[in-house]
């Protein structure tokens, strides 16, 4: 029997005026699963994610988070998701500990001083507690942002290109955190441009192009399915077919704006 998804997206359509950015997209994310939404620039990844986050009103379709319909019970749906936006920021005047306290308050999480100190030790930022968010490095900002996204232990975690701009150490650490979330049973939906990372970390991926999901499945299964396709062979280098080759084979070589 199929386990019901923590996130269920059904027949989602998103339009910007006459432009249909997302067309009939359906997928689900289960607990303990990392689901990657992959696609070239402008393919509809961020629009799909924004609709799931509640930042965009879909033209039609249903989105259910932990059993709550996003349209009918938006606050309950949002309370069950943790979001790390691609270009997000916090009030630059606030100190990091104040930002954490603000979001802990919003999500109804009790935070004692001791717990707050433990959090900073946990995210290896003991000396950044009293710094303002704008004074942190990119990696530190990402860590704070991810921590806040999961401060309320949500069932679903949404990450929009979480590793963009991070150095290899920070990226490795971030993937460690994401994998540990998976182990704890969180469902994770992420977008990334790094096919290498998606192949290594995602349990399932959906490749989206021109607003439609063109393929979905486990990375290795997709590689096996397409390894003999001429476009994929053409895209592959060094004789080894990767998820990136499948991606290029399916979405084309043309650079998107």
């Amino acid at each position: 029997m199929n386990q019901p998804g923590i996130l269920q997206v059904e027949n989602l359509f998103v339009s910007y005026g006459a432009v249909r950015a997302v067309q009939d997209v359906s997928f689900s994310v289960k607990g303990g699963e990392i689901f990657g939404l992959l696609g070239p620039n402008g393919a509809g990844k961020t629009s799909t994610l924004s609709a799931v986050e509640g930042l965009l009103k879909p033209a039609s379709g249903t989105i259910t988070v932990a059993g709550y319909d996003l349209k009918k019970q938006p606050l309950y749906a949002r309370a069950n998701m943790g979001v790390q936006l691609q270009s997000t920021s916090f009030q630059p005047e606030l100190k990091v500990k104040e930002i954490i306290q603000l979001y802990a308050g919003i999500y109804g999480v009790e935070l004692s001083d001791q717990r707050l100190n433990n959090i900073f030790t946990e995210i290896k930022m003991e000396d950044a507690k009293d710094k303002k968010y704008s004074q942190l490095s990119g990696g530190q900002q990402q860590r704070v942002s991810l921590f806040i996204a999961t401060i309320h232990d949500p069932q679903l975690v949404l990450l929009d290109e979480p590793t963009t701009g991070l150095d290899p150490q920070s990226r490795r650490q971030l993937w460690g955190r994401i994998e540990s979330m998976r182990e704890k049973g969180h469902g994770i939906l992420l977008t990334t441009h790094s096919m290498e990372e998606a192949e290594a970390v995602c349990d399932n991926v959906a490749i989206i192009d021109h607003g439609r999901i063109i393929e979905t499945g486990e990375p290795q299964v997709l590689i096996e399915r397409y390894r003999n396709e001429p476009e994929v062979i053409k895209a592959s280098r060094k004789g080894k077919v990767t998820l990136e080759d499948v991606f290029i084979g399916l979405t084309g070589r043309a650079i998107r704006s």
């Binding site: 309370a79 005047e93 606030l94 999480v109």
Partner: peptide, 27 residues
């Protein structure tokens, strides 16, 4: 897993606290 939703008044009081802090820092 319990879903916690703050009442609008509580949410507003939390936001106010940090918006006033922001304003204070913009002295």
């Amino acid at each position: 897993m319990q879903t916690t939703i703050q009442s609008p008044v509580k949410a507003l009081s939390i936001l106010l606290r940090y918006d006033f802090t922001t304003q204070w820092r913009n002295r």
